[in-house]
Simulated scan of single mutants.
Amino acid sequence: MNKERYIGIMSGTSLDGVDVVLCEIDRHSCQLKASIEYPFPSDLKEEILAMIGGECTLARVGTVDIRLALLFSDAVNALLAQEKADPKSIKAIGSHGQTLWHAPKGEYPFSLQLGDPGTIAVRTGIRVVADFRQKDVALGGEGAPFAPAFHAFLFGNTEAPNTSIGILNIGGMANITVLGKTLLGYDTGPGNVLLDLWIAEHQGVAYDRNGAWAGSGEVIYPLLESMLEDPYFAQPHPKSTGREKFNKEWLMKNIQHSTLHPEDVQRTLLELTAISISNEVLKSNPDILLLCGGGAKNAFLVERLAVLMPNVQIGMAKDADNIEAMTFAWLAYKRLHNEHVNLKDVTGASRNAILGGVYA
């Protein structure tokens, strides 16, 4: 079968940029051909954070839905211009959307992503596949994470069959994939989200480059122990989480003393990320752990993971910065070919299903 060209869009919980990729896909491979990281407007980020924090009206939801769609469209069009690519050569765009609230458990389970796909289709001239999560939720699943299915496709056919492989994505939240007879994957807890929140408030920058500010502080062990007592960390998989759980309010409930040095809090938050990740990785104890996502660039965090998991060989995954966006290009391919996505063992859904809606 000839390879088909798809675009994937990913905007994660960090709200630090829109990742857009161009991939060539067939039944056996997904090859990255081009990518772009498009800037996320600071005023739109603040608007979204305010909505997540509870300052929300229906008018605000509708407005942000369209603003995000315009942003995603501009990002796609920028990639097309960069590559001098004809929109007619693209089979479809797979759009994750921007998650505002993720509540897959409860009386009325849902997962809400904004970024109107109809608007994206109109402004790019390319059909869009979106709304991947809600059907999995309707089937009793967590609706996340979706990357493990793509990880299995991408890394499952290893040339070393006796070598066990795990994949760790460190975005706003961190999630792991365990490749084996049964595919497992779930969110371990916060990745960058609390680190980014704290440094933005105290240093006025978006993130802690290489963990340098965290490295200047000391771990506050009572604070670390308090945070690790959160029931989420002891909850068995399948499980998923987001900013509706790990946010400023959650952090401030754990910080009992305003006299704590900010750099010590940052150091403690980094240790929280490292320990909550390593505790889960060591349950499967893979031979190799491949890193992807923005947190994989945090040298101090990676150093702490290596110390906590000395028997695990840690390396960078190929196309590490773009794997999440590639996931949604691949999911669009799966939808247009009416193929089920192997996720029930990851999310806890009652069965695998064809996921996503198509917007012509």
Rank of each mutant, 00 (worst) to 15 (best):
V122P: 00
V312P: 00
A152T: 06
P310V: 03
P190L: 04
I7E: 04
N169G: 10
K318V: 05
A50Y: 05
A149I: 00
R351M: 13
V64T: 11
A212G: 11
N352K: 02
L270Y: 11
K253V: 00
V302I: 09
I170W: 09
V219D: 03
L49S: 08
N175R: 10
K3Q: 11
S35E: 10
I199Q: 02
N247G: 12
R351Q: 11
D43N: 15
P148I: 03
H237I: 04
A349M: 02
I90L: 13
F40C: 14
K344R: 15
N342C: 06
A75Q: 03
W198E: 05
K283M: 02
A360C: 09
V122F: 04
D136H: 04
R27H: 15
V128Q: 07
G348P: 07
F110V: 11
H202G: 04
G215V: 11
V20N: 07
A212V: 14
E47G: 07
N254Y: 02
G156R: 04
E55V: 11
A103C: 07
P161F: 02
K84M: 15
E225G: 10
M227W: 06
W250A: 08
D187K: 06
W101R: 13
E218D: 08
P231I: 07
L331P: 03
A206P: 03
N285E: 12
I314K: 06
P104L: 09
E201G: 12
S111G: 10
D345Q: 09
G295H: 00
D187E: 05
S226V: 06
A317V: 04
L224K: 09
L224W: 12
A325K: 00
G54A: 14
A138H: 04
M309A: 08
L195K: 01
A274N: 10
E280I: 02
L49N: 12
A81I: 15
R123Y: 11
L331I: 06
K88R: 15
K181G: 14
P231G: 11
I25L: 05
I275Y: 03
I93P: 12
I354T: 14
V122I: 14
Y6L: 07
L289H: 03
L308A: 09
P222K: 07
T188A: 07
C23Q: 00
D26M: 06
Y359K: 08
W330E: 01
E83W: 01
N298T: 08
G12P: 05
L112Y: 14
Y333W: 08
P41M: 01
E339A: 06
E4P: 01
A299P: 01
I220T: 04
D287W: 07
P148L: 01
S164G: 03
F132T: 07
G180F: 12
F146A: 05
I36E: 01
L195T: 03
K248P: 00
G189S: 09
Q203W: 06
E83S: 14
Y359M: 11
N157C: 11
D196G: 01
E46A: 15
D345R: 07
L301I: 05
D86L: 07
L154E: 06
M326W: 00
N157Y: 08
K297V: 08
L336N: 01
V341G: 00
G242A: 12
G125S: 12
